[in-house]
Design a protein around this nucleic acid. Structure first.
Length: 346
DNA sequence: AAAGCGGGGTC
DNA sequence: GACCCAGCTTT
């Protein structure tokens, strides 16, 4: 039996019921695919529900402010996805009258849509025979065909795309693409794959040569940078605080945060007090400084560890403040969100 | 070709 | 701790 036949037969029995599998509407498919980039179904699902509820059509999404979109995205990470999502919604509405492109080639031109997402939308919505290659597909193909080319090398990317394109069921590319991803997600898992009940047991090279645990091959590991964040949580007599929008490059672009002082290392109370006394935020001001968390809280991003201390700064008044009770209106990194939740307020 | 970009989950 | 996740963009 062919690879495709075994796979789609497995899928017909084992597929999960997921809301985006009930539609071919390109808006819903596009939205789900952006949410699911580098994100597990379990984590993305509630966000998908929230987005289709608040923004039932691409027109609704296009009309929103970017901050509203980021607020709804809060906690999901990789916030460029949300910014690009909003940008593309506006583009589709303003330039394409709300109609999404209907070919792989045209979809690829949308901001935030790369090879994977263009292939997914083109196949699922328009039955175009373009193979998706995501983390699941790399794993399934590298194991089944015993390919040890690094999946994040230029040659590996080409090789796996070509193989997937060769294997795809041109009669039903939508089902094939979803089946191979589902198979990777639930059966051919990274750890503890279910080889005992696998339909590919006979032909899987990794299984038959004992290489399941060493495939796929991935190059290098990134080194984690240590950073030291100090957030100033202003508390004024009229119950205001200060939030600033993160501009420019780097993490959390366009999200809000308490005024930040980044240091070279973690500082104790006395050293930090001395520092902030001369800092523009507090120079020549009267304030009372309190250290909220004794030991720095380590917030782990994939490439940075943020050693974070929150400091409350009680003052008579603040400039450019916002009522503390309105703080949850603003999109914030989850690190800030968790602090606010635990802190409560005045 | 390599780096930058989140947060949650698993082992 | 290390690794992974329905990847994309920028340098």
């Amino acid at each position: 039996m062919s690879f495709s036949k075994i796979l789609t037969r497995w899928y017909s029995v084992n597929k999960r019921n997921l809301p985006w599998r009930e539609t071919k509407n390109p808006y819903f498919i596009w939205l789900s695919e952006i949410i699911l980039q580098q994100t597990q179904v379990k984590q993305g699902l509630p966000y998908y529900e929230a987005f289709i509820t608040k923004f039932p059509t691409v027109f609704d999404l296009a009309k929103a402010d970017e901050s509203e979109v980021l607020k709804l995205w809060q906690g999901l990470g990789y916030y460029s996805r949300a910014r690009n999502l909003h940008f593309t919604a506006k583009y589709v509405v303003d330039e394409l009258n709300g109609a999404f492109p209907n070919t792989y080639k045209e979809l690829l031109k949308l901001k935030g849509v790369g090879d994977y997402t263009a292939s997914a939308i083109a196949s699922i919505c328009y039955d175009e025979s373009t193979a998706v290659v995501d983390g699941n597909v790399y794993r399934v193909l590298s194991r089944c065909f015993g390919i040890d080319t690094p999946i994040n090398s230029t040659s590996g990317i080409k090789e796996f795309k070509a193989l997937a394109q060769e294997l795809i069921d041109t009669k039903d590319p939508a089902t094939f693409n979803q089946a191979i991803m589902e198979f990777g997600a639930t059966q051919c898992r990274p750890k503890n794959p279910d080889c005992m009940f696998c339909q590919f047991q006979e032909k899987c090279i990794a299984y038959n040569e004992g290489k399941v645990d060493t495939l796929p091959v991935k190059l290098k590991k990134l080194k984690v940078k240590q950073r030291y964040f100090n957030f100033l949580v202003f508390l004024s007599e009229d119950k205001q605080t200060v939030l600033e929008k993160r501009e420019g490059k780097g993490i959390w672009q366009n999200l809000y945060q308490f005024p930040l002082i980044e240091t070279e290392k973690s500082l104790e109370y006395d050293a930090f007090l001395k520092l902030v006394k001369t800092h523009p935020y507090l120079k020549n001001k009267t304030f009372e400084l309190r250290q909220y968390n004794n030991a720095p809280k380590v917030h782990k991003l994939s490439h940075q560890h943020l050693n974070t201390t929150f400091w409350t700064v009680t003052t008579e008044s603040v400039e450019n403040g916002i009522p503390f009770e309105n703080i949850t209106d603003y999109p914030v990194p989850i690190l800030i969100g968790k602090f606010i939740e635990g802190f409560g307020g005045f």
